[in-house]
């Protein structure tokens, strides 16, 4: 039984190996880009064009993510985190929801993909923090409240990155594995229910991943703004 789509090699020539993870990641990217392009194509050529359904759906998605970001970061009119967090959410949600396509292996069911996404968050959070407060003030928080807290700060950053990666991987992988096991035991109807549960879990995990990324960013930025009160994490 396959635990990760990494081992599923679709194409091999010399040292070029295309496994299912890479291929399906590209497919998700292609779907996202094509849908976004199709939805906004009419608007680009003619600003007064009537609003299409696709555009409305994308617009709703963007304003949903924006409202969530504003609620978490507690500030009005912040759009700087929207591309990062929104992309994380859309990528994970689409790759999980496309599980309904027969033969689909969700790229988020591979630890390589989720580790890459978590590393993006681990790199992005300090960058946002540095941009908000400057390098010196950002590095200072590693030494606060006292210098011996440095290893604990580092440990917390590493462990939350690992947790982000393993949480998404474990949820998606266990979902597909349960369906595979049930197919062997009761192939007629039961897997459908588990697959529906898997879709729900996939969407919730996409939401949680994006919200956690935003919470980490907001915690870093908040800390720079109001150092005295260590509220909100």
């Amino acid at each position: 039984m396959e635990i990760t789509p990494d081992h599923l090699v679709l194409f091999r020539r010399g040292f070029v190996v295309l496994n299912a993870t890479i291929v399906y990641t590209r497919v998700v990217m292609l779907v996202l880009v094509v849908v976004a392009w199709m939805a906004t194509r009419a608007r680009k050529s003619d600003p007064d064009a009537p609003r299409s359904g696709w555009e409305g759906a994308l617009d709703g998605m963007v304003s949903l993510v924006r409202s969530q970001i504003q609620e978490i970061s507690d500030r009005e009119g912040v759009d700087e985190y929207l591309p990062f967090v929104g992309t994380l959410f859309l990528f994970i949600a689409v790759s999980n929801v496309m599980d309904i396509v027969p033969g689909w292996h969700a790229p988020t069911g591979s630890l390589s993909t989720t580790a890459a996404l978590a590393i993006c968050v681990a790199v992005g959070v300090p960058l946002f923090g540095i941009r908000e407060a400057g390098l010196k003030a950002y590095l200072h928080h590693y030494l606060s409240p006292a210098f011996f807290m440095l290893p604990f700060h580092l440990a917390s950053e590493i462990s939350r990155t690992v947790a982000l990666a393993v949480r998404l991987f474990g949820n998606i992988m266990s979902g597909s594995m349960i369906v595979a096991l049930l197919l062997a035991i009761a192939p007629l109807f039961v897997p459908v229910i588990m697959q529906m549960l898997g879709l729900l879990i996939g969407l919730i995990q996409a939401y949680i991943f994006a919200v956690l990324a935003m919470v980490y960013i907001a915690a870093t930025v908040h800390r720079q703004e109001e150092r005295p009160q260590e509220q909100n994490q």
Binding site: M1, I3, Q68, E71, I72, A163, V166, R167, F169, G170, N171, M173, S174, M177, I204, Q205, Y207, I208, V211, L212, V215
Partner: peptide, 30 residues
């Protein structure tokens, strides 16, 4: 709204411990 969002985040944090167990168990088997 706020409570359920915080609840989701907290549940995800708690659940990740169970997920670690699941990953270890699956690695041990497969």
């Amino acid at each position: 709204g706020t409570i359920s969002r915080t609840l989701f985040i907290g549940l995800a944090m708690i659940e990740s411990i169970a997920i670690y167990c699941l990953v270890v168990a699956i690695v041990l088997i497969f």
